[in-house]
Design a protein around this nucleic acid. Structure first.
Lengths: 341, 341
DNA sequence: CTGAAAGCGCTAACAG
DNA sequence: CTGTTAGCGCTTTCAG
């Protein structure tokens, strides 16, 4: 049924190995036979069987993407599709495909990875949004299997990774509010074991400390990364005796919920409360008011992560292990000077 | 290096085929040997080589996802990640993986599909957001390769597909505005060769016609599906002599841009202009004002598409070819009665 | 420069 | 119930 290398060989009057050689552009093949073979391939409509090829060559031209365990959370976030777009863009140019596998529990996730790796389905892996004490990393290290982190893992300082400097990003966001004159600044975070969130919080603390503002535990609100939580954060925050006049919010999505919530509580942004968040998803520009945010180069993060992995796979020497994507502050309408008291 | 079925056989003191049998749960295997073999697998840390397995069994347990050519457009849309979430959820339960491949031109796209299909990399394919006269469908039909459409193709009425009734959805959206008292209703679409858009427009026309409102060509604005275009649509619309008091917008994202644009033009929603759109992405609830929209069950669309494909692959009889996911109107703050003149 | 032969890791008749 | 035998479609020495 399906046309194989043998059929081509027969049609071109050569041996299967010769056909194989012209496919892999072996140098020592005469132009004449090469042409003959190509013609035969063309007219028979030959396409190599990838499975057979990778069985023997031990390479799949595929990279695996391990989706965050809490896919539920991360997925609804436009961050994900943007980062994926970047990944596919690079993979595409390098003629790699991407295999995705989702899981709903930590165990499932480990199984999925093991299947991909030991089943020789992928040449390398990308791990997203690592959490503190992530067991997958250990496993991969044991197996000595190539992978690149999108993010960082505090427990392992020497991995290949692509990341932002989230501490500095947290600092910049907070500093922006301080420079506008705010002194009562809250922080709305996410699951505290997510390293990104942790880092941004650290930057927040640093900025406060630098100008001698006190860090107040009760002004740090942890939630998950769904919009609802932003909404909910409002009700928490607005019950404080001393209310913050501004918030650093760990994710644009939560900022959306928060702004909406403030609005319903009769407060206006930025007149009553200023808000700045992170990521700069497309939509943040079109919020009402537009959201001030830290652009982290989402597309780039994805693009570079795959690039990093593929370079590593092709054994490129002189490859620096850690790639930091620069961020930048984007000031829009959601942040302004505090109301004079 | 890697442990194979032979190693297990040796360790368990049986033949390779016996090992293969216990893996595939062949009925006629004695419990005793089964246990022996399992123990050997366990202690050696055996994992089947998927490539070898699919080479002989001709099945990959993988389904391919062909991303829309204009990935640039579709990807920034949270619609995509939500639909993907649904797809992965079902694939996961059925122990299938998903292979994605992107392309930047029609030719690349065709090549990618051909590689996947003829390279025996996937058992079936999912096609998203088909356009008029899509050549991929023809190709797949020629090859007699199983696929399921997410959407529909007017040229082929008899394909397996999962879809909404977009005509009816367009009708419902428009009717909602009419019932609020609007008589001057515009339509903001997208690339006109996208079938979804076309269908929603048809529904829009039907609703107008039903109540005897004239269809005006100049009130139909076509753009792409980026937010910018919503923004841009405003400037077009607001230059009309007779301005619409309401808009049916083919996608939530564009509605975001439009609302923002109207706002900057000094018009308020819904007091001056009402707006309703489609999809009900998570964020539309948190817009300011919250967007009235037609919920199309995005997650479900993805979930059911993969289900449909996998059922088809497992040769399930009595499988209805066309699955229609119901939609429903969600009224929020962006639509209201027109200002009395 | 090209062909023959062996084998990647697994499954599937066909005999026992 | 289990072992033997042949491949799946491709690459890769090793000879010519």
């Amino acid at each position: 049924m399906s046309v194989t290398i043998k059929d081509v060989a027969r049609a071109a009057g050569v041996s299967p190995s010769t056909v194989s050689r012209v496919i892999s552009r072996h140098p020592k093949i005469s132009p004449a036979t090469a042409r003959k073979v190509r013609e035969a391939m063309e007219s028979l409509g030959y396409h190599p069987n990838i499975m057979a090829k990778s069985l023997v060559s031990k390479s799949t031209q595929t990279i695996g993407l391990v989706l965050p365990r809490s896919a539920e959370e991360l997925f609804v976030n436009p961050f994900f599709s943007e980062v994926l777009r970047g990944m596919l863009a690079y993979a595409n140019t390098a003629r790699y495909d991407m295999l995705m596998s989702s899981a709903t529990s930590q165990q499932e996730e480990l199984d999925a990875v093991t299947r991909m790796v030991l089943g020789r389905r992928v040449d390398g892996l990308i791990l997203m949004a690592p959490r503190l004490g992530d067991p997958i990393i250990e496993r991969l290290l044991e197996l000595d299997f190539p992978f690149v982190l999108l993010g960082r893992s505090p427990e392992h300082e020497d991995l290949f990774l692509v990341n932002n400097n989230n501490v500095s990003a947290g600092y910049d966001a907070t500093h922006h509010l301080i420079s506008l004159g705010h002194t009562r600044i809250g922080f709305v975070g996410g699951p505290p074991d997510m390293v990104v969130i942790h880092d941004r919080l650290t930057g927040y603390k640093q900025a406060l400390e630098e100008v001698g503002l006190p860090f107040r535990d009760e002004w740090v609100i942890n939630a998950d990364l769904l919009q609802k939580s932003g909404f909910h954060a409002v009700s928490v925050a607005m019950n404080y005796q001393e209310k913050p006049t501004a918030f650093v919010i760990a994710d644009d999505i939560v900022a959306f919920g928060m702004i909406r919530g403030l609005c319903e509580a009769g407060l206006s942004v930025p007149e009553d409360v200023s808000v700045i968040s992170f990521n700069n998803i497309m939509l943040s520009e079109l919020s009402n008011p537009p959201i001030s945010t830290i652009d982290i180069g989402i597309y780039h993060l994805g693009y570079l992560t795959v690039q990093q992995l593929i370079r590593r796979l092709s054994g490129e020497s002189s490859l620096q292990k850690q790639v930091i994507v620069p961020h930048r502050l984007i000031v829009r309408g959601s942040s302004g000077a505090p109301r004079p008291r």
